[in-house]
Design a protein around this nucleic acid. Sequence first.
DNA 1: AGCCAGGGTCTGC
DNA 2: GCAGACCATGGC
Length: 290
Amino acid sequence: MEIVISKNDICLPTFLEEQPLNLKETLDCGQCFRFSEMEGNHYQGVVQATLIDVEIMENKLYFHNTTMQEFEDIIRPYFDLDRDYQGIQKLLSRNPTLRKAIAYAPGIRVLCQEPWETLCTFLFSQNNNIKRITGIVDRFCQEFGEEIAENLYAFPTVEKTSTLNREKMSPVRAGFREKYILDAAEKVESGQVNLSLLSQMPLEEAQEYLQQISGVGPKVADCVLLFGGGHPDAFPKDVWINRAMAALFPKGLPKYALPYAGIAQQYIFHYIRTSPDCEYLRIKKEPTKK
DNA sequence: AGCCAGGGTCTGC
DNA sequence: GCAGACCATGGC
Protein backbone atom coordinates (compact mmCIF):
# COMPACT_ATOMS: atom_id res chain seq x y z
CA MET A 1 0.00 0.00 0.00
CA GLU A 2 1.48 3.28 -1.09
CA ILE A 3 1.43 5.82 1.73
CA VAL A 4 2.47 9.46 1.44
CA ILE A 5 2.91 11.58 4.55
CA SER A 6 2.99 15.35 4.43
CA LYS A 7 2.72 17.56 7.50
CA ASN A 8 -0.15 16.06 9.49
CA ASP A 9 -1.86 14.43 6.54
CA ILE A 10 -1.66 10.90 5.24
CA CYS A 11 -2.56 10.20 1.65
CA LEU A 12 -3.12 6.83 0.01
CA PRO A 13 -2.75 7.95 -3.59
CA THR A 14 -3.47 4.65 -5.33
CA PHE A 15 -5.72 2.83 -2.88
CA LEU A 16 -8.94 3.68 -4.69
CA GLU A 17 -7.55 2.48 -7.98
CA GLU A 18 -7.08 -0.96 -6.49
CA GLN A 19 -9.81 -1.34 -3.90
CA PRO A 20 -13.40 -0.13 -3.53
CA LEU A 21 -14.26 2.45 -0.87
CA ASN A 22 -17.04 5.02 -0.89
CA LEU A 23 -17.25 7.16 2.24
CA LYS A 24 -20.97 7.79 2.19
CA GLU A 25 -21.84 4.20 1.38
CA THR A 26 -19.57 3.01 4.18
CA LEU A 27 -20.04 5.58 6.93
CA ASP A 28 -23.69 6.38 6.40
CA CYS A 29 -25.25 2.99 5.75
CA GLY A 30 -26.45 2.01 9.20
CA GLN A 31 -23.44 0.04 10.42
CA CYS A 32 -21.83 2.95 12.25
CA PHE A 33 -23.34 6.06 13.84
CA ARG A 34 -20.29 8.12 14.71
CA PHE A 35 -19.36 9.96 11.52
CA SER A 36 -20.74 13.27 10.26
CA GLU A 37 -20.70 14.48 6.70
CA MET A 38 -18.67 17.65 6.11
CA GLU A 39 -18.52 19.82 3.02
CA GLY A 40 -17.41 17.77 0.03
CA ASN A 41 -16.60 14.06 0.07
CA HIS A 42 -15.40 14.47 3.62
CA TYR A 43 -16.32 12.88 6.95
CA GLN A 44 -15.36 13.37 10.58
CA GLY A 45 -15.92 10.87 13.34
CA VAL A 46 -14.58 9.38 16.50
CA VAL A 47 -12.77 6.07 16.80
CA GLN A 48 -11.08 4.98 20.03
CA ALA A 49 -11.50 8.46 21.51
CA THR A 50 -9.62 9.89 18.54
CA LEU A 51 -10.90 12.32 15.96
CA ILE A 52 -10.73 10.75 12.51
CA ASP A 53 -10.96 13.05 9.52
CA VAL A 54 -11.22 11.33 6.16
CA GLU A 55 -11.68 12.81 2.72
CA ILE A 56 -11.58 11.75 -0.91
CA MET A 57 -10.23 14.35 -3.34
CA GLU A 58 -9.45 13.72 -6.98
CA ASN A 59 -9.88 10.00 -6.39
CA LYS A 60 -7.26 9.99 -3.65
CA LEU A 61 -7.90 8.92 -0.09
CA TYR A 62 -6.75 11.31 2.65
CA PHE A 63 -6.67 11.14 6.42
CA HIS A 64 -6.18 14.62 7.82
CA ASN A 65 -4.62 15.75 11.05
CA THR A 66 -3.21 12.37 11.98
CA THR A 67 0.09 10.55 12.44
CA MET A 68 1.60 7.37 11.10
CA GLN A 69 1.12 5.85 14.52
CA GLU A 70 -2.61 6.63 14.53
CA PHE A 71 -2.91 5.40 11.01
CA GLU A 72 -1.42 2.03 11.88
CA ASP A 73 -3.12 1.64 15.26
CA ILE A 74 -6.58 2.98 14.50
CA ILE A 75 -7.35 3.89 10.91
CA ARG A 76 -5.95 0.90 9.09
CA PRO A 77 -7.76 -1.69 11.21
CA TYR A 78 -10.98 0.36 11.51
CA PHE A 79 -11.44 0.73 7.76
CA ASP A 80 -10.11 -2.80 7.30
CA LEU A 81 -7.81 -1.45 4.60
CA ASP A 82 -5.89 -4.68 4.18
CA ARG A 83 -8.90 -6.76 3.24
CA ASP A 84 -9.16 -7.58 -0.43
CA TYR A 85 -12.64 -6.32 -1.27
CA GLN A 86 -11.90 -6.58 -4.94
CA GLY A 87 -11.46 -10.32 -4.54
CA ILE A 88 -14.51 -10.69 -2.27
CA GLN A 89 -16.70 -8.83 -4.76
CA LYS A 90 -15.46 -11.03 -7.56
CA LEU A 91 -16.38 -14.12 -5.58
CA LEU A 92 -19.83 -12.85 -4.54
CA SER A 93 -20.57 -11.64 -8.07
CA ARG A 94 -20.83 -15.22 -9.27
CA ASN A 95 -24.44 -14.82 -8.17
CA PRO A 96 -26.44 -12.51 -10.49
CA THR A 97 -28.47 -10.88 -7.70
CA LEU A 98 -25.41 -10.24 -5.57
CA ARG A 99 -23.71 -8.89 -8.66
CA LYS A 100 -26.50 -6.33 -9.07
CA ALA A 101 -26.44 -5.36 -5.41
CA ILE A 102 -22.67 -4.88 -5.51
CA ALA A 103 -22.84 -2.89 -8.73
CA TYR A 104 -25.44 -0.64 -7.13
CA ALA A 105 -23.14 0.39 -4.25
CA PRO A 106 -19.68 -1.09 -4.77
CA GLY A 107 -18.00 1.22 -2.28
CA ILE A 108 -19.49 -0.28 0.86
CA ARG A 109 -16.94 -1.71 3.25
CA VAL A 110 -17.67 -3.35 6.58
CA LEU A 111 -15.88 -1.44 9.31
CA CYS A 112 -14.13 -3.00 12.31
CA GLN A 113 -15.65 -1.06 15.16
CA GLU A 114 -14.91 -1.38 18.85
CA PRO A 115 -16.90 -4.25 20.38
CA TRP A 116 -18.28 -2.30 23.35
CA GLU A 117 -19.45 0.56 21.18
CA THR A 118 -20.94 -1.84 18.66
CA LEU A 119 -22.75 -3.72 21.40
CA CYS A 120 -24.33 -0.56 22.80
CA THR A 121 -25.18 0.81 19.38
CA PHE A 122 -27.07 -2.29 18.38
CA LEU A 123 -28.80 -2.56 21.73
CA PHE A 124 -30.06 0.95 20.96
CA SER A 125 -31.09 -0.28 17.51
CA GLN A 126 -33.67 -2.69 18.85
CA ASN A 127 -37.09 -2.06 17.27
CA ASN A 128 -35.83 1.36 16.22
CA ASN A 129 -34.93 3.28 13.06
CA ILE A 130 -31.54 4.48 11.89
CA LYS A 131 -32.34 8.16 12.26
CA ARG A 132 -33.36 7.86 15.86
CA ILE A 133 -30.54 5.45 16.73
CA THR A 134 -28.12 8.17 15.63
CA GLY A 135 -29.77 10.66 17.97
CA ILE A 136 -29.65 8.27 20.91
CA VAL A 137 -25.96 7.47 20.31
CA ASP A 138 -25.18 11.19 20.04
CA ARG A 139 -26.88 11.97 23.32
CA PHE A 140 -25.28 8.99 25.06
CA CYS A 141 -21.81 10.19 24.03
CA GLN A 142 -22.53 13.79 24.87
CA GLU A 143 -23.83 12.90 28.33
CA PHE A 144 -21.22 10.35 29.36
CA GLY A 145 -18.30 10.41 26.93
CA GLU A 146 -15.09 12.36 27.23
CA GLU A 147 -14.97 15.54 25.16
CA ILE A 148 -12.03 15.04 22.79
CA ALA A 149 -12.55 18.14 20.64
CA GLU A 150 -15.00 21.00 20.62
CA ASN A 151 -18.46 19.48 20.82
CA LEU A 152 -17.08 16.05 19.90
CA TYR A 153 -17.29 13.22 22.36
CA ALA A 154 -15.74 9.80 22.77
CA PHE A 155 -18.00 6.83 23.24
CA PRO A 156 -18.67 6.30 26.98
CA THR A 157 -16.37 3.72 28.53
CA VAL A 158 -17.60 0.49 30.08
CA GLU A 159 -16.42 1.73 33.46
CA LYS A 160 -18.36 4.97 33.22
CA THR A 161 -21.48 3.23 31.93
CA SER A 162 -21.37 0.74 34.78
CA THR A 163 -21.89 3.61 37.24
CA LEU A 164 -25.15 4.74 35.60
CA ASN A 165 -28.76 3.92 36.39
CA ARG A 166 -32.16 4.37 34.73
CA GLU A 167 -32.52 7.88 36.07
CA LYS A 168 -29.13 9.04 34.83
CA MET A 169 -29.80 7.41 31.46
CA SER A 170 -33.11 9.20 30.96
CA PRO A 171 -31.72 12.22 29.03
CA VAL A 172 -30.51 9.76 26.40
CA ARG A 173 -34.19 8.95 25.68
CA ALA A 174 -33.43 5.37 24.79
CA GLY A 175 -36.73 4.15 26.21
CA PHE A 176 -36.92 0.52 27.26
CA ARG A 177 -33.39 -0.07 25.89
CA GLU A 178 -31.82 1.67 28.90
CA LYS A 179 -31.92 -1.45 31.00
CA TYR A 180 -30.09 -3.43 28.34
CA ILE A 181 -27.19 -0.97 28.29
CA LEU A 182 -26.93 -1.13 32.07
CA ASP A 183 -26.96 -4.92 32.08
CA ALA A 184 -24.30 -5.02 29.38
CA ALA A 185 -22.07 -2.59 31.29
CA GLU A 186 -22.38 -4.60 34.46
CA LYS A 187 -21.52 -7.88 32.79
CA VAL A 188 -18.59 -6.49 30.84
CA GLU A 189 -17.21 -4.47 33.73
CA SER A 190 -17.36 -7.47 36.08
CA GLY A 191 -15.58 -9.66 33.56
CA GLN A 192 -18.53 -12.03 33.21
CA VAL A 193 -18.47 -11.10 29.53
CA ASN A 194 -15.10 -10.51 27.88
CA LEU A 195 -15.68 -8.87 24.52
CA SER A 196 -12.09 -9.30 23.43
CA LEU A 197 -12.64 -13.05 23.21
CA LEU A 198 -15.29 -12.76 20.51
CA SER A 199 -13.01 -12.64 17.51
CA GLN A 200 -11.30 -15.89 18.52
CA MET A 201 -14.51 -17.83 19.13
CA PRO A 202 -16.31 -19.88 16.51
CA LEU A 203 -19.34 -17.96 15.25
CA GLU A 204 -22.01 -20.05 16.97
CA GLU A 205 -20.21 -19.99 20.29
CA ALA A 206 -19.78 -16.22 20.09
CA GLN A 207 -23.48 -15.80 19.29
CA GLU A 208 -24.52 -17.74 22.38
CA TYR A 209 -21.90 -16.03 24.53
CA LEU A 210 -23.20 -12.56 23.65
CA GLN A 211 -26.78 -13.58 24.30
CA GLN A 212 -26.04 -13.82 28.02
CA ILE A 213 -26.58 -10.10 27.94
CA SER A 214 -30.17 -9.04 28.37
CA GLY A 215 -31.51 -7.47 25.19
CA VAL A 216 -29.08 -9.34 22.97
CA GLY A 217 -30.84 -11.80 20.70
CA PRO A 218 -29.73 -13.32 17.39
CA LYS A 219 -29.88 -10.08 15.39
CA VAL A 220 -28.00 -7.86 17.83
CA ALA A 221 -25.43 -10.60 18.43
CA ASP A 222 -24.77 -10.93 14.71
CA CYS A 223 -24.44 -7.16 14.29
CA VAL A 224 -21.87 -7.02 17.09
CA LEU A 225 -19.96 -9.93 15.59
CA LEU A 226 -20.02 -8.58 12.06
CA PHE A 227 -19.40 -4.90 12.75
CA GLY A 228 -17.20 -5.19 15.82
CA GLY A 229 -16.28 -8.79 16.44
CA GLY A 230 -14.20 -9.80 13.47
CA HIS A 231 -16.77 -12.21 12.03
CA PRO A 232 -17.43 -11.44 8.36
CA ASP A 233 -19.50 -14.63 8.21
CA ALA A 234 -22.08 -13.31 10.70
CA PHE A 235 -25.36 -12.55 8.95
CA PRO A 236 -27.71 -10.20 10.87
CA LYS A 237 -31.34 -10.71 9.92
CA ASP A 238 -33.49 -7.63 10.41
CA VAL A 239 -36.89 -6.90 8.91
CA TRP A 240 -35.32 -5.62 5.70
CA ILE A 241 -33.04 -8.59 5.18
CA ASN A 242 -35.89 -10.99 5.89
CA ARG A 243 -37.90 -9.32 3.15
CA ALA A 244 -34.94 -9.33 0.78
CA MET A 245 -34.11 -12.96 1.40
CA ALA A 246 -37.69 -14.12 0.87
CA ALA A 247 -37.89 -12.24 -2.42
CA LEU A 248 -34.38 -12.51 -3.80
CA PHE A 249 -32.76 -15.58 -2.17
CA PRO A 250 -35.56 -18.00 -1.30
CA LYS A 251 -33.01 -20.82 -1.05
CA GLY A 252 -30.54 -18.77 0.96
CA LEU A 253 -27.17 -17.41 -0.07
CA PRO A 254 -25.01 -19.55 -2.33
CA LYS A 255 -22.53 -21.69 -0.41
CA TYR A 256 -19.44 -19.93 -1.71
CA ALA A 257 -20.76 -16.65 -0.27
CA LEU A 258 -21.06 -17.93 3.29
CA PRO A 259 -17.56 -17.02 4.56
CA TYR A 260 -18.44 -13.42 3.62
CA ALA A 261 -22.17 -13.60 4.30
CA GLY A 262 -22.02 -10.48 6.43
CA ILE A 263 -20.37 -8.45 3.72
CA ALA A 264 -22.93 -9.72 1.22
CA GLN A 265 -25.57 -8.74 3.77
CA GLN A 266 -24.42 -5.12 3.65
CA TYR A 267 -24.75 -4.96 -0.11
CA ILE A 268 -28.20 -6.56 0.05
CA PHE A 269 -29.34 -4.31 2.90
CA HIS A 270 -28.41 -1.15 1.05
CA TYR A 271 -29.76 -2.46 -2.25
CA ILE A 272 -33.22 -3.36 -0.99
CA ARG A 273 -33.60 -0.16 1.02
CA THR A 274 -32.60 2.32 -1.64
CA SER A 275 -32.34 0.87 -5.15
CA PRO A 276 -35.12 1.66 -7.65
CA ASP A 277 -34.89 -2.02 -8.65
CA CYS A 278 -36.32 -2.95 -5.28
CA GLU A 279 -39.08 -0.39 -5.00
CA TYR A 280 -41.68 -3.12 -5.33
CA LEU A 281 -40.32 -4.61 -2.10
CA ARG A 282 -40.87 -1.38 -0.19
CA ILE A 283 -44.59 -0.93 -0.82
CA LYS A 284 -46.34 0.68 2.13
CA LYS A 285 -49.81 -0.27 3.13
CA GLU A 286 -52.65 1.59 1.43
CA PRO A 287 -53.41 4.82 3.25
CA THR A 288 -56.67 4.53 5.13
CA LYS A 289 -59.50 5.63 2.88
CA LYS A 290 -61.38 8.76 3.72
C1' DA B 1 -53.07 10.04 12.77
C1' DG B 2 -51.32 5.77 12.59
C1' DC B 3 -47.73 2.72 11.16
C1' DC B 4 -43.21 1.41 11.46
C1' DA B 5 -38.48 1.04 12.86
C1' DG B 6 -31.10 -2.79 11.56
C1' DG B 7 -35.82 -6.99 18.07
C1' DG B 8 -36.08 -9.19 22.41
C1' DT B 9 -38.49 -10.75 26.56
C1' DC B 10 -42.07 -12.73 28.85
C1' DT B 11 -46.17 -15.27 29.20
C1' DG B 12 -49.33 -18.77 28.05
C1' DC B 13 -50.41 -22.77 25.37
C1' DG C 1 -41.24 -25.10 20.72
C1' DC C 2 -44.08 -21.18 19.17
C1' DA C 3 -47.48 -17.38 18.75
C1' DG C 4 -48.81 -12.92 20.62
C1' DA C 5 -48.71 -8.92 23.76
C1' DC C 6 -45.70 -5.60 25.20
C1' DC C 7 -42.00 -2.47 25.39
C1' DA C 8 -40.68 3.85 24.64
C1' DT C 9 -40.03 6.99 21.24
C1' DG C 10 -40.19 9.77 17.24
C1' DG C 11 -39.83 9.95 11.96
C1' DC C 12 -42.62 9.86 8.20
